[in-house]
Design a protein around this nucleic acid. Structure first.
Lengths: 338, 338
DNA sequence: TTGAAAGCGCTAACAC
DNA sequence: GTGTTAGCGCTTTCAA
């Protein structure tokens, strides 16, 4: 066993070298059970000498528990999710858990495939974005009995525990603020062809508040492209070139809004006099822009961190926790654009 | 076996239901060996009915081969690495491989710990940033015989295969361009306290070219913070408030440079007349800024994609490939700032 | 405080 | 085409 040229050293090899049984090596490595210091040191020395690396596949197979968390996100092209992923990774790493992950590109079908595949690693937890998942996805997750966290959204029914804030309410708050500033003629600017369901909920809240105030959107401009500053700039230019100009634009996120700001700066359009703007996210780089954008600050990193922490909990047979929505809130950040 | 309440269904369960042997189920699932269509359909149906999910821990343990790739990156706070990670993920996903990953925050020690830990999953490949790694890291990787890809840098000796471009040359090209534009008084602006080794190499190339032209840096302003637009804006403001102003600033990356542009716009400083600028990366959002930044476009996504593809190759006992540097090049993008 | 035996769920190797 | 046997490297369980 020790001499297969092609194989990694195993506990048997360490045991042989240290003159103990394989089981003793296991105890030393996992730090469980009573071991004399003498033996412990001998084992550690032997392991180091032959370059032993534990095999987690074998460990996980036997103990039915892995320090692995499946992370399923829509995209990495949006700063929001990279910040969330940072939070997740930090929290998991602190508990010696690792994320294994995949991207859905906002497709429910891809999500299902990923979930199925990731489940085959018997992760102790799985993290999904949003509350909307196909029936097949829900079924696969339910029968696997992994711990589940859903993030970003709390407007709906979670599978188990959701960490986020109300997207609908974020839209409402923005609308209220813009109305209070005296704006009446609104245009909405979005991206991704509307496949971002959270953006859709914000728009829904925005529209609803407008309606209650007797106002309405003049139009919705939604690009098929992923969200980006340049797309925001392009759409803003298009809107401002119309004969019937709005007096305010609601962007589905900050990148698009920043593009709008850039257009106005380049063209000498005055904000908010000629056109008012509001975005969403509260990205750090906004502070560096020449004019401060009115936006909603969302606790992205914190959402990731808390969800990660939740998923990396020690496996204390947590019997059927009741579904829970954890509201991490958001904050209207009033800038100079509205 | 089939009735342990707490366990996932296994191939034995599927086999019992389909009235075949467990081995036949294995063959159907892995798509290897001859199976009659009748049996195949029965097995698939049975698997679906009881919600069977294969156990990759068991499979990997037995077959000594996992569709897992360890990805070790410095940070997700830099768009560069999120784009690289997108490329990696896309390439891996296309081959049904999954990334399992961790962040070093630019620490060699954290890198070592991560590498050790990730190796315990017996991944078929590992991906690292840069060419500089501790001796311990190199040793751990060598004795594990996983496939290795290093990314971003080719100025040095790779463990196996490196995908990137010459950072030193990027610095040189930038310096040459700025000199040609007639600038002589340079300041360098960096971040991260200099822990980004690739940025250091660019600076080295920049300095060297300056020296050959009889010029030199007036000073280097390096923030301890991570790179960001706001830090770039802050440092630029500081530099331009000095009595002895430079006529050009070389930023270690685009985020810092964009911050510089924002400062100048807000303060009415004229670019490039009052101050010239050059950055590095060629981030997409630059196109949306009111003035086009002179920078170096690096093939970040492509680097990730190619490295991912390399690591997800079918395991054809690739005997000791000689170390190789794959130069994916870069491109000077001349804008209006220099 | 240590060891021996059994077996987690799967696939390689061979039989039929 | 399909089944049988053995065993991957570890932890659980029980014994000493």
């Amino acid at each position: 066993m020790a001499d297969r040229k092609t194989a990694q050293p195993t506990m048997d090899d360490v045991a042989a070298r240290a003159g103990v049984s394989q089981m003793t090596v296991s105890r030393v490595m996992s730090g469980k059970g009573y071991i004399s210091e003498k033996v412990r040191d001998r084992v550690h020395a032997a392991a180091l000498e032959i370059g032993y690396v534990q095999n987690r596949l074998a460990r996980g197979l036997r103990s039915e528990e892995t320090p692995l968390v499946a992370v399923v996100l829509p995209t990495l092209g949006n700063t929001v999710f990279t910040e969330v992923l940072s939070g997740i990774t930090d929290a998991l790493t602190a508990q010696s858990f690792r994320p294994v992950f995949g991207l859905t590109e906002y497709s429910e079908e891809r999500e299902y495939e990923l979930v199925r595949d990731l489940l085959s690693w018997r992760p102790s937890g799985i993290l999904l974005a949003g509350l909307e998942h196909s029936a097949a996805t829900r079924r696969a997750i339910a029968s696997s009995r992994v711990r589940v966290a859903e993030i970003m959204d709390i407007d709906g029914a979670p599978i188990s525990t959701a960490f986020g804030f109300s997207q609908i309410s974020a839209g409402q708050v923005t609308a209220k603020h813009m109305l209070a500033k005296g704006h009446r003629k609104f245009v909405y600017v979005g991206s991704q062809g509307g496949s971002d369901l959270r953006a859709g909920k914000r728009l829904e809240g925005f529209r609803q508040t407008l309606r209650e105030a007797g106002a309405a959107l003049m139009s919705e401009v939604v690009s098929q492209q992923p969200s980006s500053m340049i797309e925001g700039r392009r759409m803003t230019a298009e809107i401002l070139s119309r004969s019937d100009r709005p007096d305010a634009i609601y962007y589905s996120n900050d990148d698009l809004a920043a593009g709008g700001i850039m257009h106005c700066f380049a063209q000498g359009v005055s904000i908010p006099d000629d056109i008012a703007m509001a975005g969403f996210n509260g990205l750090p780089y906004l502070d560096a822009l020449p004019i401060k954008l009115t936006t909603i600050k969302s606790p992205r990193y914190e959402i990731g961190r808390q969800a990660g922490q939740f998923l990396a909990m020690p496996a204390k047979k947590d019997g059927k926790t009741t579904p829970q929505l954890i509201d991490l809130g958001f904050e209207l950040s009033v800038g100079q654009t509205c």
